[in-house]
Design a protein around this nucleic acid. Sequence first.
DNA 1: TCAAAAGTGTTAACCATACACCCATGC
DNA 2: GCATGGGTGTATGGTTAACACTTTTGA
Lengths: 229, 229
Amino acid sequence: MPYTYEYPHPAVTVDGVVFGYDEADLKVLLIQRDQPPYRGKWALPGGFVDMNESLEAAARRELEEETGVTELYLEQLYTFGEPKRDPRERVISVAYYALVKLADHTVRAASDARNVAWFPVANLPALAFDHEEILDVALRRLKGKIRYEPIGFELLPEKFPLSELQRLYETILEQPLDKRNFRKKILSMGLLADTEEIQQDVAHRAARLYRFDEPSYRRLKKAGFNFEL
Amino acid sequence: MPYTYEYPHPAVTVDGVVFGYDEADLKVLLIQRDQPPYRGKWALPGGFVDMNESLEAAARRELEEETGVTELYLEQLYTFGEPKRDPRERVISVAYYALVKLADHTVRAASDARNVAWFPVANLPALAFDHEEILDVALRRLKGKIRYEPIGFELLPEKFPLSELQRLYETILEQPLDKRNFRKKILSMGLLADTEEIQQDVAHRAARLYRFDEPSYRRLKKAGFNFEL
DNA sequence: TCAAAAGTGTTAACCATACACCCATGC
DNA sequence: GCATGGGTGTATGGTTAACACTTTTGA
């Protein structure tokens, strides 16, 4: 027991809410615990913060270690620290949420062989600790933020048809959007570049594929433009 | 040295960015440190989290102990945890920001006789640790949030004239607002109750005093109303 | 009577919404 | 040729933005 302090110190962990999206659903990445407490229960990936790494670095490391997910949009969400949230000892958890392009990231089981899987947020298992609350906060944040920051693109493949973008918004905001108005608005922003490509192998007229034009966005933003819906 | 752990644990603190407002300025509450490191420097009030209290309770307790400020709007801001942000040991700081009615809170020097004072945010001294960064994040949050949540009232006295509300918004948003449009909009929301009182002892026509009607706001909110600007 | 801030309406431009049909493609 | 989703324009109503003068009060 080599680490001693004059005053008691809580443990500090990071937990990650990783969102992905496929044609049908918004999904979240969970791991199945193989140690008590909550052995066998599903939980958010996470772990202890090392003494020499920043909180964000810890979150990235844990996500990579436990799920193989890398290269993601990551943002601090909220810090959870109720005294009894972990039955073992006082644990402060700094939660992050992440957005990944599902197609690029086939998750692999973690090195320690725990189960890893995507669950639709509309149909989740019971979660360990206070992870349902964390997920809830993450969902509210995503729902709020997607309306005034262009982060939805982080959940889509590099190239996507407008209908897929619309479906993503409809799924996350939980409300239908008018097709013509949606297209008009999003195209008028000048954030999407036409890739000059079209869908392949679809059983109907193939849609144009667009891509989020990051440099344009930065330019517009500097000029005072504010993304909204 | 009675507290030992199998793995190293960082220390966890809370820091508070307390905002106040008077006719002229947005202000922030700072304390002058009387211990190294940064002895003599101004800093945000804060301190260690006790093992049996929640993070928010810790923030409230520290603010009360160090500045005498109580009964305030308090919200978690962000968690700062860069490895070297405190030269003594690894310290994770969960920052909160608070809004208080300046008139109600003449600050008292803390029990341990440290200096406490309000500073205009436009004219701050150099701060200890990474507290300038924390303050910066708090300002951005306040600026964003005041536009879509009715939190500005937390900074004003119970009863206030519309012009003072407008000045508050102009100060925080750092942009002038049109008087007629501002009044039209804010009054049309139905959130302000006319107190039937008027200003006293002013050297010009006395303005009506209004008060934020919390029950009305809750009712409207439940009915789907969204405050904006 | 002057200074200082309170209080008050109208118009024009813009933006959001609602809404329906033809097109291209693969089966 | 039919089913599937892609793609397109207009009209209306509501919201925002711009703008100037009269009123009240105390000094």
